[in-house]
Nucleic acid binder design. Sequence first.
DNA 1: CTTATTCCCTGATTGC
DNA 2: TGCAATCAGGGAATAA
Length: 273
Amino acid sequence: MPELPEVETIRCQLLPLVSGRAIVDAWLSPEAPRLPAFPPDAGAFASLLVGRRLLSVERRGKYLLFPLDDGHTWIVHLRMTGALVHSSAGAVEDRFLRARFRLDDGCHLYYRDVRKLGRMWVVADPAQVVGKLGPEPLSEGLSAAALLAALRGRRAPIKALLLDQGTLAGLGNIYADEALHEAAISPLRPAGSLTPEEAERLCQAIRRVLAGATRHGGTSFWAYLDARGERGQHQLHVRVYRRQGQPCPRCGAAVARVRVGGRSCHYCPACQV
DNA sequence: CTTATTCCCTGATTGC
DNA sequence: TGCAATCAGGGAATAA
């Protein structure tokens, strides 16, 4: 479940490894016919990448973007179980390998995805894919005033709005729960009921939580692996996520787990109001 | 416009 | 021991 910290970890690792490299071969597994979202034909998709040089590695929300030397952009979304691993060793085949890209220095980028939910695009304009995303939490794009404006009049639970990538780009289930705990705001609060003070607190909590998780190389409860094929460490530092029944680190009350918007939601009913 | 629900996917876990 | 039901959730699609 790569969210912003996981994708940012991968971006930082890949940047020095693939910048300036050309893709000399691309293979997409026929077992994952939906991996190429655009163009949807695997052959056409591969031919847009082969021969192209990767100029850099960028990130927008949970999307990885590779600007190409012909002006197009290769975009990758890992969704739930995707992993993009760089290897200088020989081929590492397994049943979950969905794509393989050989670079002009002999290294490979391997795309593994157990559940085949990940998607890739090659587009002329990245806005076709990432154009509707909300502001970046770690840049100046996110402000309390902007957040408050986005929440105004909304009756859905604040947790649901934080998961909506159009409100804010990059939060998933883990960090939405963690940020709301950090800000001491209940995930069930109607989004429009937040005060300016609470919006400011939530903004700062989101930044703190995402920055901390990025320092720990992301969270690996399940499948997440970074670009070196290694697990993150932030699961050792979560305060409420998957800690139902255990004491809240702030007030000691038992952490609760409820369902919000079809997703599991963990919070402290005592100090998150 | 809003909010809620379903679907895609499959391995791991739980229940009987 | 086996087998079925449940769970995990990002995002698109659909329903209301």
